[in-house]
Simulated scan of single mutants.
Amino acid sequence: MAHTLHGEYKVHGGKLVVVDLAVTDGRLAEVSVSGDFFLEPDEALDDINAALTGLSSDLPAAELAAAITAGLPDGVVLFGFSAQAVAVAVRRALAKATSWHDHEWDIIAPTVLPTAVNVALDEVLTEEVGAGRRNPTLRFWDWDEPSVVIGSFQSVRNELEPAGVEKYGINVVRRISGGGAMFMEAGNCITYSLYLPQSLVDGLTFEDSYKFLDSWVMAALESVGVQAFYVPLNDIATDQGKIGGAAQKRLSNGGMLHHVTMSYDIDADKMVQVLRIGKEKLSDKGTRSAKKRVDPLRRQTGLGRGELLAHMMATFADRYDAKASFLTAAELAEAERRVDAKFGTDAWLNRIP
């Protein structure tokens, strides 16, 4: 009898999907999908199992999901889950996809570093995790100098107000991930980076991967009275306004960066003197004012920044059994080398003038 494999996937904001199966001659066999989801009619569960049975165990999640969808009759209702969610559970059963608890996680507490070094560390540590030389890691940033970190694909002249940059002595750096500009003064925001293997988000859409990777921070915020949610694709908000945004970068060696900045006590008047936030940027945000669009966590929680950081780290550690870690001398040296060679150069900053 073939060995039974087991995979589980909890849909963000939805239900648990469980798949038990075997593999015979490279094909899925004895497939049994279960969970606390809702499905009408009941017989559609048999259709899902049948659609998966006999498929190659090497198929990517997208093709598994497509086979499930094609095998379901018209009018079937999946509530609290999806064909994609089933596909992720299948990939986890096959050990092609991983869950949080399949990894040993490290946490690096905030360390004051130049902004360019923080940006370079994102590239270095993502490579290290992808190569298997470092455990998947959550790292919180800290910095002293006022900075703007622009997204990988943003134009310098379109994003920055030169007069404001000069007036406030802003250090401008370009990061490796996409997304929008970050206005960062000492203590005005909470910034963290997750370095992880791409297997953790195997089968998830880009949109779902953002929600999935930040589920822990949503729980941390909820426990201090902040009901946060994602506004597609990458904005984090409450009913009071936007509190942050996320960005990602996937490397060819299998490593992945997920980066988040949340406003803690931002000076919105100064921000709009430094950043060019045009009408088109705000056109789908439900507001005409960039200053009104951002609502800081300090006002919403009443907690000190250190208290919030400690609470976030404790939540992550409790959920994923993460251990305290530190940047190594070699990692810091490599980051500083890359500042000199790349992140601190005009060529990198102005690659999109």
Rank of each mutant, 00 (worst) to 15 (best):
residue 266 I to M: 15
residue 49 N to I: 08
residue 195 Y to D: 07
residue 177 S to F: 02
residue 99 S to V: 13
residue 199 S to V: 02
residue 225 G to W: 06
residue 29 A to C: 03
residue 306 G to I: 08
residue 351 R to V: 12
residue 294 V to L: 11
residue 16 L to N: 13
residue 288 R to P: 00
residue 254 G to Y: 04
residue 205 T to L: 04
residue 317 A to K: 14
residue 249 K to H: 13
residue 194 L to S: 08
residue 295 D to F: 07
residue 130 G to T: 06
residue 183 F to S: 10
residue 170 I to A: 01
residue 318 D to F: 03
residue 232 P to G: 02
residue 281 K to P: 00
residue 82 S to A: 15
residue 99 S to R: 14
residue 175 R to H: 10
residue 306 G to E: 13
residue 341 A to C: 00
residue 61 A to R: 09
residue 295 D to V: 13
residue 1 M to Y: 02
residue 149 V to Y: 02
residue 260 V to W: 02
residue 81 F to K: 03
residue 58 D to L: 04
residue 303 L to P: 03
residue 207 E to V: 14
residue 71 G to D: 03
residue 296 P to G: 15
residue 205 T to G: 09
residue 91 R to T: 10
residue 310 A to L: 03
residue 296 P to T: 15
residue 351 R to K: 14
residue 7 G to W: 05
residue 331 E to Q: 13
residue 318 D to Q: 15
residue 59 L to P: 02
residue 17 V to N: 02
residue 112 V to D: 07
residue 69 T to F: 00
residue 154 Q to I: 04
residue 116 A to G: 02
residue 7 G to I: 06
residue 312 M to F: 15
residue 35 G to C: 01
residue 47 D to L: 03
residue 127 E to F: 06
residue 36 D to R: 08
residue 309 L to A: 05
residue 116 A to V: 02
residue 88 V to G: 03
residue 11 V to E: 12
residue 171 N to S: 11
residue 43 E to C: 03
residue 20 D to L: 01
residue 185 E to I: 03
residue 329 A to N: 05
residue 2 A to M: 10
residue 126 T to R: 08
residue 202 D to E: 15
residue 36 D to A: 07
residue 210 Y to V: 15
residue 201 V to H: 06
residue 237 A to E: 12
residue 293 R to K: 06
residue 306 G to Y: 09
residue 257 L to I: 09
residue 21 L to N: 08
residue 146 P to Q: 04
residue 170 I to N: 01
residue 45 L to K: 15
residue 350 N to V: 00
residue 146 P to F: 02
residue 9 Y to S: 07
residue 209 S to R: 08
residue 75 G to I: 11
residue 1 M to K: 12
residue 136 P to Q: 05
residue 142 D to Y: 01
residue 198 Q to D: 09
residue 214 D to W: 04
residue 137 T to Q: 04
residue 243 I to G: 03
residue 227 Q to D: 13
residue 53 T to H: 00
residue 248 Q to W: 02
